[in-house]
Design a protein around this nucleic acid. Structure first.
Length: 622
DNA sequence: CTAGGGTTAG
């Protein structure tokens, strides 16, 4: 019986045909290592070592495990492949990769299990390329991977070279008939999703004969991670209808999708469901909830979750800090950062510092932000500033109007400036109407990033503000010539758990007519109290009347107007835009807030704009 | 004995 148990898994049969094992004839497959294993079952030393090592593994008892290992060496006991593999697992579980590797290197022979164990050790610790190299060595050594090996090695296929190898591994999987295995399949579809190949992921998922929580979660999260939030939500609903079981990881994926959609009511519903269904409050799930509420515009709920957590990771702090930062709550960012440093339990990392610096910038605390950056460079914080942090400094200087200084700062950086850095300075030049620097930077940027439509728009706005219409025109021609594709602007609003999408050229909304009438009506009445359409936001070469028409068709105006029609008078209008909000729409929203005495919360690509009584939390800088 | 899905930033 004992023998059979050891022998069974090593027979290379597709898992789906496990019934065929009945036809198995023992003597045919009884190879050398198995014999040894069978014999060692009668070896009392083996049994003792094995029992103790298993206990050490379960208890993650590193010291005790080391003593067992030392005993094996001292007594000159020759451990089997089996026992050596236990040692690899022990050291892996105890976070001692070097020891695990040492045991592996000393092995006189290896089997698929020992290979898989060492590959798993490297992939768990994040050493993807080491894991992949070991996998290749394994193949060269003539050891055939099994379903465990495939499921493991695919998790290390995360870089661009990894993805190429991953595709090749996929064909190996097909050849060796593991395609239908649910562990292999989840790992495989996850790899495709991480490579952005969602259709391949979907195909792998659909071909799985049996789906479980993990494979379902992998495909839902795959969609969510790629920003295909609506698809993720739709799939979640469908699979739920088909009887899928969800656990906390599934909900984490769904909540990520709802964060992207800023669907507050749906998010609350899922949160309630989680609370009711006795799913343990894992940190990861709570982190995703903090982020969800903040991205839905409700920082109070985020903070409530944050405050009640019994354990916080650096991600919990970062999610909360990023929340305050995106809402322009600079003071709160600093307060929380102080709390974090005083608590000393969790160390700030580079994301923390990104949140703190951008929080100072969004919150108008430029000098504080610059001081914190100096603390970083002098080593006071313990986080080395990287390119992104330098980018924040450009933002800080630009925001406080020190455009020339920002330019000098970029030139003095220890890095080659990226397009994002130049882009930030271009934005600053536009806000402060610094045509000289803006032009210099803009032209440079158009060469680095000729396909980024946003750069043309900002530079054009800058020229327009200086009355340089000839330059505006030639810029538009250049854009046409280079066939720059602009990501279509899209805005949406959630009303009674339903998301209403608006698109500048899309007439599909059932109440479109009514909405268009409302926008025009608003425009007319706002003009009476001072609203002047900002025609420089329109790049098309048409007459002014046409330009105004185009402006009124902007998706955020449609969503805002629909919000005004379809929501109660006392609730804030919450609109989400996929790109940066345009100056004219920002102004339009201010008039809504003033004339109708309604709070407007507008989330764009970069931050929140909380507009009350005609004033915006961004201070008109974004 | 060895295995799959998850949170912040850009």
């Amino acid at each position: 019986m004992r023998l059979t148990r050891h022998v069974l898994p090593s027979i290379r049969q597709p898992f789906s045909n496990s019934r065929n094992l009945i036809t198995y004839t023992p003597h045919f497959h009884l190879q050398q290592p198995l014999l040894q294993m069978a014999l060692s079952a009668f070896d009392t030393n083996f049994q003792t070592y094995n029992d103790i090592l298993n206990e050490c593994v379960n208890k993650r008892a590193f010291r005790e495990g080391q003593r067992v290992h030392a005993h094996i060496i001292k007594t000159r006991y020759l451990p089997s492949v089996f026992l050596r593999t236990r040692l690899i697992v022990l050291y892996t579980k105890c976070d001692s990769l070097g020891d695990a590797r040492h045991v592996f290197d000393e092995m006189h022979e290896r089997n698929v299990v020992s290979w898989t164990a060492i590959i798993s050790a490297y992939s768990q610790r994040g050493y993807a390329s080491h894991a992949l190299n070991l996998f290749l060595q394994m193949l060269r050594s003539g050891t055939e991977p099994n379903e465990f090996t495939f499921a493991t090695v695919l998790t290390s296929c995360t870089s661009s070279t990894g993805f190429i190898l991953g595709r090749q591994i996929h064909s190996l999987i097909i050849k060796s008939n593991y395609e239908d295995h649910v562990f292999v399949g989840s790992s495989l579809l996850d790899m495709y999703a991480k490579d952005g190949k969602i259709h391949e992921a979907q195909t792998v998922f659909e071909c799985l004969p049996e789906k479980d929580v993990v494979s379902c979660t992998a495909i839902i999260s795959g969609y969510a991670q790629l920003g295909l939030d609506e698809e993720a939500l739709e799939l979640f609903r469908r699979l739920q209808g088909e009887g899928m079981q969800s656990n906390y990881v599934t909900y984490t994926g769904v909540i990520t999708a709802l964060s992207g959609l800023a669907a507050l009511d749906l998010g609350k519903q899922v949160h309630n469901h989680v609370l009711r269904s006795e799913i343990p409050s894992f940190v990861v799930l709570q982190n995703s909830l903090i982020d969800m509420y903040s991205k839905c515009g409700n920082l109070t709920y985020s903070r409530r979750i944050f405050d009640t957590m019994y354990e916080r990771t650096v991600i919990s702090w970062n999610a909360m800090l990023v929340g305050y930062s995106k809402h322009g709550e600079g003071r709160e960012v600093l307060n929380l950062f102080t709390l974090m440093r005083e608590g000393k339990k969790v160390k700030p990392d580079s994301v923390t510092m990104l949140a703190v610096l951008s929080g100072c910038s969004h919150g108008g605390l430029e000098d504080t932000g610059l001081n914190i950056f100096h603390d970083m460079t002098s080593g006071k914080i313990g986080v080395e500033p990287k390119m992104e942090h330098y980018g924040c400094v450009v933002d800080l200087l630009g925001r406080s109007g020190r455009v020339e200084e920002a330019f000098e700062f970029i030139k003095s950086m220890p890095f080659e400036p990226t397009a994002a850095i130049w882009g930030s300075l271009l934005g600053a030049s536009r806000v402060h109407s610094n045509v000289d620097i803006g032009e210099l930077v803009g032209q440079q940027l158009l060469e680095i990033e000729p396909g980024n439509a946003g750069n043309y728009v900002i530079l054009s706005n800058l020229y327009a503000s200086a009355g340089r219409w000839e330059d505006v025109r030639s810029l538009r021609d250049l854009m046409l010539k280079k066939a720059v594709a602009k990501e279509p602007g899209r805005s949406w609003i959630e009303i009674d758990q339903v998301l209403h999408n608006f698109h500048a050229s899309d007439h599909s909304h059932p109440r479109r007519e009514e909405i268009c009438v409302k926008v025009k009506e608003l425009s007319v009445s706002f003009k009476e109290v001072g609203y002047v359409p900002d025609l420089s936001c329109v790049l098309h070469d048409v007459d002014e009347e046409q330009k105004e028409k185009i402006l009124l068709g902007h998706s955020e105006k449609l969503a805002l107007s629909f919000g005004l029609i379809a929501t109660a008078e006392n609730v804030p209008i919450r609109v989400i835009k996929n790109l940066r909000i345009c100056v004219d729409c920002h102004n339009f929203a201010k008039y809504i807030s003033k004339v109708y005495d309604r709070e407007v919360s507008l989330r764009d690509k970069n931050r929140f704009h909380r507009i009350v009584g005609g004033k915006c939390s961004c201070g008109d800088y974004w």
